[in-house]
Structures are given as C-alpha cells and as structure tokens.
Design a protein around this nucleic acid. Structure first.
Length: 470
RNA sequence: GGCGGCGUAGCCAAGUGGUAAGGCACGGGCCUGCAAAGCCCUGAUCCCCGGUUCAAAUCCGGGCGCCGCCUCCA
C-alpha cells in the first residue's frame, strides 16, 4: 500500500503525508468573502477541499475541517487603502453588512450542498472572533512586530526573515517593477495592516473597540486567529486558491509564526489552480456566459455534473470551462449515474479478490496528490467492464462514491424522475401511436415533430413510448 | 520588471525516459417504418527547432504561443 503524498506549495514538492497527530487531520480552508454570489471558480475551490477531506476520511483519518466566512476587513483594492467589500456591498443594497453577509453565506452553503460537499466541522465568521484577533495583534505588538501609522497598525515584514518563503517571492525584484502606490508611511512595500483605524468622522457599519482605538481587523488576521482557535497553533493542511498564496497566505504565515512562535505553522499548503474561461471569453453575464452554479442549474444542468466536471481534471491544473465542456461532463455523468443505478439492482455478495486490483488503482491515484482524473478512469473501467461480475461492479461503485461524492447509484437522481406525464402530451403521444399502428407515418411523424418543436423528446421502448423535456 | 504554470486527437483531459488513460463529440454498425434513446466499434506520436540517450510527449538548450500572481480575487 503506497503512501499518501501531497504537493506542498511551500516546499515545492510532493511529500509523503504525515499528520501531526497520528490518525487525525486538521484542515483549514480559506472560505468566501460574503459580499457577492460565488462563481463556478469558487465552487471549484470548495470541491477541492471537499475531495481532500473525503479522501482522508476514506483513509480512516478523523478529519476536522474549518472553513472561515470573511465578513469584514476585506478591502476592495489598493493594498491597504481601499473600501471594505462588505461596507461597499451593504451601501449598494441599502442593507446592513450583517444582512449582506447572512444572505451570501446562505447562498454559498446552498451551492456547497448542491454539489454534495460535506459540511465543515467549523464554519466561523470573522466578526464572531474579533476578540481572538485583537489578542493575536496584542501578542504581535508585544513582540515588536507591529508599528502604527496614520491609518492603522502594520506588520513589519522585515522582522520576519522567512517572509518570502511560502510563495518564493523576490521582494526586491517586485518592488523594482510594477509595484506602485505604496501606502504612505509603510516601512516596506510588503507590510500589511493588522488593524485598521476608523476614519475620523466616518461611521462604519462594522467597527470595534481595541487597545488601538475604534477600527476593524485586517483581512489576514482572521485566518491566523480562527485557525488556532479551532485547530491549534499548528495544524496539518491549509487550502485555498493559488492566487491567495502570494499575499494572503504569506501574511498569515508571518502573523502566525511570529505570534505563536511556531515553524512551520502549517505542514502542507495545498492550492488549487483556476478555472479558465478560455482565450478572450471572459466570464461575464452580459456576454451570456455561465458564471454561477445557479446559472448552470437554470440551464438544466445537474449541479453534480459540475462536480463530475471538476473530477475530470487535476486540481493543480488550470481547467478550461466552457459550455461545451460542461455539457459533455453532464452527459458523461448521466451515463455513469445510470450504469451505477442499474447495478444497485444486483443482489448477492462480491469477491474481494476480484475487486482488489480496482480498489488499489483507485486509491493509488488519489494517494498521488489527489489525481482525480486517474481515479475516474478506474471508475469508467469498472462501469464498462465485461470481465467483472455485476456484483463486484456494484460493490466497487459503492466503495468509490463516498470519495467522489457523485451520489452514484442513487436512483432518485438518475432515471426515476426522467419520464414525465401530462394529459395533453400523453394524448398526443397516443395519437401518434395510433397513427403508427395504422402505418400512417405522415401523421405519426408530424406529431413527433410538433412535440420536438416544444423541446419534447419521445423515447420509444418495449413498454411503449415515453417522453421528457430536453 | 519579478515569480509560477501551461501548450497531448474537434472539445475536457491523464501520462514526466521505454514506445500515448478516461470522458464528450464525429464517423460506422446494431436496433427502428424512418428517427430518437440505448448498446457496440472507431481516432492522436504529443507547439516548433536543436541536443542527450539503445530509447523522449516525458531530460537539456533555444524559440513561438497562452494563462495566473506580484493590488481585491478561488
């Protein structure tokens, strides 16, 4: 049995996975900033952390998964100088930041549920952990890592020698280049706000008292504070989108390692690559491109088909998203589901010897840095095998599904809901059938064409004709 | 300017030294009154050039193209 290996961004290599505590794994995943609806790219990140969790559970680990909800402090733009995303969204909608956060948090949870993600053990909100964040800032201040300028309390990144380590940054090269617009008073371009002061005379929707006056926490602080609260001052795996590595995660490391006095703070950094929209096809509603999971659902695509789509590519590879790609995934998923559902009807006991090689190949693919596409190839081998007994195929599908999360073999999602009935259409169908029996092909085909024009597909079968909407 | 990644059949994609997984589409076949649905079969020498090697999609060098990050971003 080969060992589990994961690619770690910090060490830039794939390494055997060894948890800090045998049998247990702590995972912290950077969650959504709840100021807007999440798009399919966000869903990919969510699916990635879920696949990781499901695989580790299948390996027998006791997994604690934490996903944070960012509901304050995430600025719109400009290093540490822009508007708070939550404040901006609230203003636009004429609601409180809390209402905005609650609304989009709920949508995010619905998306996750729709693609069958296991709920996290903890789902903390930044605004519920202001105390912990202030405590951490106090510790950092006592350690001499912070300095205060007009608009906030900043972390002096020159005090942390390993600052550039996680993302392999070349700080000098960066500052010589494109980087412009340094906040006045910052000692180093890479310094970041730990606590922001409320502007004089400006009433924010979200602000709190602190030893440094009224204000709000910097974006990065919440992840350091909340991860330690739920997973301890060191933990096993931290996940997020690849874009977060350079700034957000780099700053988290600085705060945590300096504040907690640990190294390495996180054993494995795992980052998922982006979904690409292909060439000049920017993702935007005005162009009619699909953008959110809801858009997909509105087009009649099963949200689980998006999960299937996700599983077709490796998480560290950019994946091209297009109408054609998601449509082909939906078709493949439907076929697979149908095969699995039919296998559920098989009775009897399988053979461990027969199943062994397939289970091993499946597991090894995932143990190799979560190579889902390779695992899916094994699934299809089983689905289309004519050398395996049906009982064994059934058992294998049942064994694979808890890791894949595709709800294979779940009849209700597969075929049982497929056929519809409606008095008018059923009547037309009967009319066509009568014409067929009379060999009046012209009439029969006319009825079929009429229904097709309504988007209705007739499927003839030994039990008689049935229909469904395309 | 710096950092990172990618370029494999029409599309989505595995594969990092021994001679190209899987899915979708197309085409062909079975079925059908004809179709549809379903089932079966079928396709690539891996962006270009040069090098290393008995052997390279896989290693090295040089190009070309594309993408991400460095400012919020999954």
């Amino acid at each position: 049995m080969s060992q589990i290996e994961f690619y770690d961004t910090r060490s830039r290599e794939q390494r055997p996975f060894e948890p800090l505590t045998p049998g247990k794994v702590g995972i912290y995943s950077c969650g959504p900033t709840v100021y807007a609806e999440q798009h399919v790219g966000n869903v990919r990140s969510r699916l990635f952390s879920d696949l990781l969790k499901r695989f580790l559970i299948s390996e027998g680990f006791d997994v604690t998964h934490v996903i944070n909800i960012t509901d304050v402090g995430h600025l719109v733009s400009d290093a540490d100088d822009g508007e708070d995303k939550m404040e901006a969204a609230a203003k636009r909608a004429g609601q409180t930041a809390g209402e905005i956060a609650a609304h989009y948090t709920e949508l995010w949870r619905q998306d996750a549920a729709a693609v069958n993600c296991l709920p996290p053990e903890h789902n903390p909100k930044a605004t519920d952990h202001i105390e912990e964040q202030i405590e951490l800032a106090k510790t950092l201040e006592a350690g001499g890592y912070l300095y205060s300028i007009s608009d906030g309390l900043y972390f002096d990144t020159s005090r942390f020698p390993r600052y550039a380590e996680l993302a392999g940054l070349d700080l000098e090269g960066q500052s010589e280049g494109m980087r412009i617009g340094i906040t006045a008073g910052k000692r180093n371009p890479s310094d970041f706000a730990v606590w922001k002061f409320a502007e004089e005379g400006v009433q924010r929707l979200q602000e709190w008292d602190s030893p440094w006056g009224v204000g709000f926490p910097g974006w990065h602080l919440e992840c350091s504070a909340m991860s330690s609260r739920y997973l301890g001052e060191r933990f096993d795996i931290h996940t997020g989108g690849i874009d977060l590595a350079t700034v957000h995660h780099t700053n988290e490391v600085a705060q945590s390692e300096c504040g907690f006095g640990v190294h390495p703070w996180v054993s494995y950094w795992m980052h998922n690559e982006f979904l690409s929209m292909g060439g000049d096809e920017k993702m935007s509603k005005s162009k009619g491109n699909v953008k959110t999971l809801t858009d997909l659902i509105d087009r009649g695509i099963d949200p689980l088909a998006f999960r299937y789509f996700f599983l077709q590519a490796h998480y560290r590879q950019q994946q091209a998203f297009s109408d054609e790609a998601i449509a082909s995934a939906a078709k493949g998923f439907k076929r697979l589901q149908k095969i699995a559902a039919e296998l559920e009807a098989v009775e009897g006991d399988g053979s461990a010897d027969e199943q062994g090689p397939y289970r091993a190949r499946f597991r090894e693919a995932l143990a190799d840095d979560l190579n889902a596409p390779r695992a899916m190839a094994v699934v299809w081998d089983v689905a289309r095998s004519d050398s395996l007994a049906d009982v064994d195929r059934r058992d294998l599908m049942r064994a694979f599904d808890p890791v894949l999360g595709l709800q294979l073999g779940c009849a209700s999602t597969a075929v049982s809901d497929e056929w519809e009935s409606d008095p008018r259409i059923d009547g037309l169908l009967a009319e066509r059938n009568n014409a067929r029996e009379a060999k009046d092909w012209a009439t029969a085909d006319r009825v079929r064409d009429e229904l097709a024009a309504e988007g209705i597909e007739i499927v003839d079968s030994p039990e008689g004709p049935r229909w469904r909407r395309k």
